[in-house]
Design a protein around this nucleic acid. Sequence first.
DNA 1: TTGTACGCGTTATCAG
DNA 2: CTGATAACGCGTACAA
Lengths: 295, 295
Amino acid sequence: MEAVEKLGYRPNPNARALMTGRSGLVGFWMCLQYSRYRSQVLDRMRGLLGQTELAMAVTDIDEEYHWDHSFNRSLRVPVEGIIAFDASDSIQALGQVYDRLAPNTPFVSMGIYWSNAKSYVGVDLRAGADEAMDHLLSTGRRRIAYVVPFNSSLVEEGVRVEAYREKMAAAGFAIDTILTHGVTSAEVGVDLAARLAESPAPDALLCMNDDLALASSVALTKLGVHVGSDIAIVGFDGIQETEDCPCPITTVKQPIDEMCALALRFLKSQMEDPLRPLQQQILKPSLIIRDSSKG
Amino acid sequence: MEAVEKLGYRPNPNARALMTGRSGLVGFWMCLQYSRYRSQVLDRMRGLLGQTELAMAVTDIDEEYHWDHSFNRSLRVPVEGIIAFDASDSIQALGQVYDRLAPNTPFVSMGIYWSNAKSYVGVDLRAGADEAMDHLLSTGRRRIAYVVPFNSSLVEEGVRVEAYREKMAAAGFAIDTILTHGVTSAEVGVDLAARLAESPAPDALLCMNDDLALASSVALTKLGVHVGSDIAIVGFDGIQETEDCPCPITTVKQPIDEMCALALRFLKSQMEDPLRPLQQQILKPSLIIRDSSKG
DNA sequence: TTGTACGCGTTATCAG
DNA sequence: CTGATAACGCGTACAA
């Protein structure tokens, strides 16, 4: 111990990890595509892991690159367990690919995609989307438009557009999709202004996420349209900013804290007991009704 | 290779790391305290590393826990290099502690704190704070208040309050600090309303960061105070949201992209050549003047 | 081209 | 309880 102190000796983490099989690392897989929601989830998980002895290794799993590349890089980092967050195609490919690649590494997926072959903490965003549509329809909105960036996969796929189309069809109203060429209020403003110039103008916007809802709200206000009375806005995800803005925005709030805490709990229990059976739970998002859709 | 395919063999990352000395991991040290700026920096670094073969291991270095605990946990993860972001006390302690603990691990600090004993990409926020104060004073503001959460270390320390006090003293105006009990617009609103009830009311707010500036802007608007004409607001950090909001906010913008890219470049070059001499560079923030302080 | 032995630095085990 | 030694799994160098 004197020698340790005198020579400034430090254990080699790699050798220790090789011997013990424990690296102290949890892999966090997410896609590179930025959104404030994803950023908040990342930060939340960072906070939770900050209270433990574990550290977080963040890697991205993106379809942009080849699967092999993404997976290989992700699997090259010595993790004791993996949490995959909103890994869309990842999850689909996972059943086929993952078991070959890291069959013994504890794995939990988290978010709106899941596979029954794996442990997960799912969020039933479809239920939330249905609720949001019911809310808009029951408060008298008829010309509801779905707002989404033109290059998003959510234009045609996903629970949001599915709920939108089915609810509109059931109510007998026409579909109206507004494609934006960006998510800033300036960009969204251009597209909304163009759409509002046509008639009939929409009386409600179902925005693909809160970033877009916030941008739309700011853009509409600048266009002289009164959010909440002239037009309703609903977003998805429930980020803090929707509450803390001039006109609080109705949103389908994902249970960030509970989702993260539960996913980490599942993962830790699997890390302690690798033979533990799958743990699967679905959480419900909650529709938070605020001024943007009350009027 | 057939056997590899057939048996689903995967190299053991720990053994590989032990042998090669390379884990493919870059340690990212930051404090747990959340701000949107920190979150955006984290996300930016995630994006940069996502384009490389490296992954990011995020650990927090916080004073809340004992130094030993934080350092030990951080150093237990097998990283090839370390980027320390806005590590305040860390940096000060680093000169004394770090060399004992990980003398051979490439290290670059990034942000508004640095130590001449290490490589760094610094941001001269004092210059930005001075510029912000000059801007407010030169546009006729005299009753400038400094807004900061009551429990922040920035109440008394740091370049913001230093610039504020010196510039106010030089101009012959009185100091006025508004302590908030939170950073949401609701919380900030209570404290601002209380202060505005007293006279003389401030004609400008120098907010400790953009989160607070945004919250103040929303809160003041709700109080019926017209931001930009009745009162000016200036924030720090330059997060995207300051531009994309009803009344765009003047801010001291930190060069996030350049800072992250440069820090990573420094680190990679040190990882390739451990004998490389220290690399040190100071970046200047830029004052972005917007509507919140024009009127 | 194919195979074998050694070393990386630690932890764990077993004999003294 | 202390001290020597095996083993973790991969990369590499050297021999066949």
